[in-house]
Design a protein around this nucleic acid. Structure first.
Length: 186
DNA sequence: ATGCAGATTGACT
DNA sequence: GTCAATCTGCATA
């Protein structure tokens, strides 16, 4: 499998969110490789999206959302959780990112179980803060290039899942946008 | 099955 | 000072 190229991430954020479904998120830690199929995403825009961290302009925390596409935007929230995004926006925008909300664990399941302190596969990485805990993704990965084979990157995959669009989770503003996407393989 | 409180910190107004 | 792109455990039915 090939890494997803930079050009993929310079499309409309919503398109990238949909098409990221089915691709493989890989996290390398020393000699171990953890991976999983991306099964849930959410798009966060720029000026068109009051729910986006980028809505009010650039700040020290969200600067990655305004940076080069194809890099990671990791933020800390609720005093204890990290969430991981892929920076993606087209030429009509200056910022945008896709929140990865769920993966189906593939490689390194034992290690992810240890990181999450659970044996339950379904509960391993089916949430934005669960997958970062399972894969040990923190501020250290902030801004890293997902198109390079390094600590964290994304692989292509030809499988085209069925996609269901819903309202985004956990936000107060712009709840009408159907920018949450889930993949179904059947 | 559904609902809610508590945890806990840093970014921003 | 406010509150967050969440998760967990416990309570209720």
């Amino acid at each position: 499998m090939r890494r997803v190229p930079r050009s993929f991430y310079s499309q409309d954020t919503v398109v990238v969110a949909k098409e990221l479904l089915g691709k493989i998120l890989v996290r390398k830690i020393g000699r171990h490789a953890l991976s999983g199929v991306i099964v849930e995403t959410e798009a966060y825009g720029h000026r068109d999206d009051p729910a986006s961290h980028a809505y009010r302009g650039i700040t020290p925390r969200n600067q990655a959302m305004f940076g080069q596409v194809g890099h990671a935007y990791v933020y800390f929230t609720y005093g204890m959780h990290y969430c991981m995004n892929a920076v993606a926006y087209d030429k009509d925008n200056d910022a945008g990112a896709v929140l990865i909300r769920g993966i189906q664990p593939k490689d390194g399941i034992e290690i992810m179980m240890k990181n999450r302190r659970t044996e339950n596969i379904t509960n391993l990485a089916n949430g934005p803060a669960k997958l970062t805990q399972a894969m040990k993704i923190t501020k250290k990965q902030y801004g890293q290039d997902l198109t390079r084979e390094s600590e964290i990157f994304i692989l292509d995959n030809d499988i085209k899942p069925r996609i269901i669009s819903k309202n985004r989770v956990g936000i107060r503003l712009a709840t009408e946008k159907l920018w949450n996407f889930k993949a179904y393989f059947n």
